[in-house]
Nucleic acid binder design. Sequence first.
DNA 1: ATGCCTGGTTAAGGCGATGATAAGAGCGCA
DNA 2: TGCGCTCTTATCATCGCCTTAACCAGGCAT
Lengths: 226, 226
Amino acid sequence: MADILLIEDDVAIRSALSRGLRELGHAVSSSPTAFEGLRLAVDDRPDLIVLDLGLPDLDGVELLRMLRAVSRVPVIVATARDGDSEMVPVLDAGADDYVVKPYSAAQLDARIRAVLRRAGAEPAAEPLRVGGLRVDPRARAATLDGQELDLTPREFDVLHYLATRSGEVVSKRQLLTEVWQLPYGGADKTVDVHLSWLRRKLGETAAEPRYLHTVRGVGVKLAEPS
Amino acid sequence: MADILLIEDDVAIRSALSRGLRELGHAVSSSPTAFEGLRLAVDDRPDLIVLDLGLPDLDGVELLRMLRAVSRVPVIVATARDGDSEMVPVLDAGADDYVVKPYSAAQLDARIRAVLRRAGAEPAAEPLRVGGLRVDPRARAATLDGQELDLTPREFDVLHYLATRSGEVVSKRQLLTEVWQLPYGGADKTVDVHLSWLRRKLGETAAEPRYLHTVRGVGVKLAEPS
DNA sequence: ATGCCTGGTTAAGGCGATGATAAGAGCGCA
DNA sequence: TGCGCTCTTATCATCGCCTTAACCAGGCAT
């Protein structure tokens, strides 16, 4: 599934997680120390790193910053402390996610998949094109037939999400969880509102769609006008 | 003269060189181990590193590669071996120069000056242009429509950073870590203040931007006025 | 045909992000 | 050691965006 580097000093946890993750299909290398871990991170270039905070030889945040200096490899931090406040500096230092001990390999696997999914979706820094529509993630700007569109952040996110899946039907639920990052709770009228605003700015109506097509009972899709 | 980091395990050589280089006007920090040295390289960002190959805890070439992963800081390698063939992999790994033991502080100083001269001359310090804005890293000066702008050091750094990424949205967090070199800690009001000052000196307001556009919820971007 | 359900639009309020200013701290330089 | 320039921090005003709510319009099933 993925190359995982596990940096964890407790030998029991380390071997248990290694075994567990391997059974779930990952390739796992591990290190009991920060420095050795850093070396492995540089040499082996794992797809993802699981980093325990309570290392003996170096503060976890410190190591995290060094890792970040070296690469943008996703890092999941594991910690015994459970206060959320403890996690703020860690996340600020560039961690992608965290788990609180005790945690199982299966739990960790779920996080790993989520983080990798997110990370994998990212490197789309190239402008996207759908017909006369151009969506540029780097500039966070969109143009329609050369005309710059004045979009709000959320509108841009929605358009961008649809543009990366142009031609594909996307459910509102999907938008809510992916764009809004909300656990789907039914309050999806907000999505409707934003789609409406988008349509207006795209110069079209729901009755006369050009790019943004409603698929009744399913969702919406972004497609080239025919 | 320069911030030098000396990574050398032999205590006699280390202290002798430290003293010698200090007398020649350099600021010297040092480490007897590779890992500690790496940490200092990341944290202190020296102007140049002098690296001994015969370290106890990690192969020199290995460390060199890790250093290169972290930064492009010039590295002079010191070695006891005298065969030139030994040096090929070292130079391939990204060393800028090397000296063979035994060597004096004065000798080293000459190398240091040569490397820094080369390194300092090199970085494509071409003036950047964004519309009527010109940012000259070499002179650390900027002009707007031919008019020289009176910028403070920090203001210039911010403008320069944005100019190298013109058209791209840059987050405040990014500015804080890249320009201020701070581990993001949330104190990003400072960034706002500097942006505000920049805007004033660019003759624009946030409400009527010409070059410096805020992208709400994300950051700012420098772009040509339309 | 009619009522329900899905989807669309509009309006209004609250919240959070941003912008500007001023005061204080730090620092280098004289 | 003192002065002045910069940078930082704090505060407040402002503005834009998102959400919520209410209402409207079609289509589909009964």
